[in-house]
Write a protein that binds this DNA or RNA. Structure first.
Length: 184
DNA sequence: AAGGTTCTCAACCGCAGACAT
DNA sequence: AATGTCTGCGGTTGAGAACCT
């Protein structure tokens, strides 16, 4: 992903993936001086990166409390519910999922959930669906990814109301069922 | 095993708003 | 009030991984 350096600031500005050394410098600098104005932080730390790039790297990857991967069924439901409420307000949604970043939620939505919505539009009537109900503004019928036999089994135990397609990597059930089983 | 295709996610870009001068 | 700088956000891109044929 190495791109042509941008020299608009007069100095060489590095772009593309962060190296371990850069990560180490950034972590060390923030540990010693805290988060401050990102542009001056980048300069003070001696990083050939923009403040914006440092901020993004820190918030999305290096922060000690950041959690990556393994979105739980509960988190997915929350994402779906909040997205139904607020739309693409990723940072707002992320505030309700401790340790998750807006970028991760946005990626998760686009790569997992949106994919199934599109499938549903293509194959209307199949098990995964999003419906408008008269009683509520929006009811989201659930799709929870199950990445392994273990999580498949866990999903069944967690949500007894779920109907899981045999041999499938996706579990599908009514959002209302899951909500009443698990959150009500 | 090899080549092609699809998926994932880190990182970039552009824009808007907040704040400082 | 005008201008500049910084931050935060949402959309997009593209490299590498994973999967498929």
């Amino acid at each position: 992903m190495e791109k042509k350096p941008c020299n608009s600031l007069g100095n060489e500005v590095r772009k593309g993936p962060w190296t371990m050394e850069e990560d180490f410098i950034l972590i060390n600098h923030i540990a010693n001086h805290g988060e401050s104005v990102w542009n001056s932080l980048a300069r003070a730390a001696g990083l050939k990166r923009t403040g914006k790039s440092c901020r993004l790297r820190w918030l999305n990857y290096l922060r000690p409390d950041v959690r990556r991967g393994n979105i739980t069924p509960e988190e997915q439901l929350l994402i779906m519910e909040l997205h139904a409420k607020w739309g693409n307000k990723w940072s707002k949604i992320a505030k309700h999922l401790p340790g998750r970043t807006d970028n991760e939620i946005k990626n998760y939505w686009r790569t997992r959930i949106q994919k199934y919505i599109k499938q549903e539009e293509t194959f209307a009537g199949q098990s995964c669906e999003i419906k408008e109900h008269a009683s509520t503004s929006l009811q989201v019928s659930g799709m929870i990814d199950t990445y392994s036999p273990q999580s498949y089994q866990e999903t069944l135990e967690t949500f007894p109301g779920a109907t899981l397609a045999p041999q499938s990597t996706q579990a599908c059930w009514s959002f209302e069922d899951v909500w009443s089983t698990h959150f009500a």
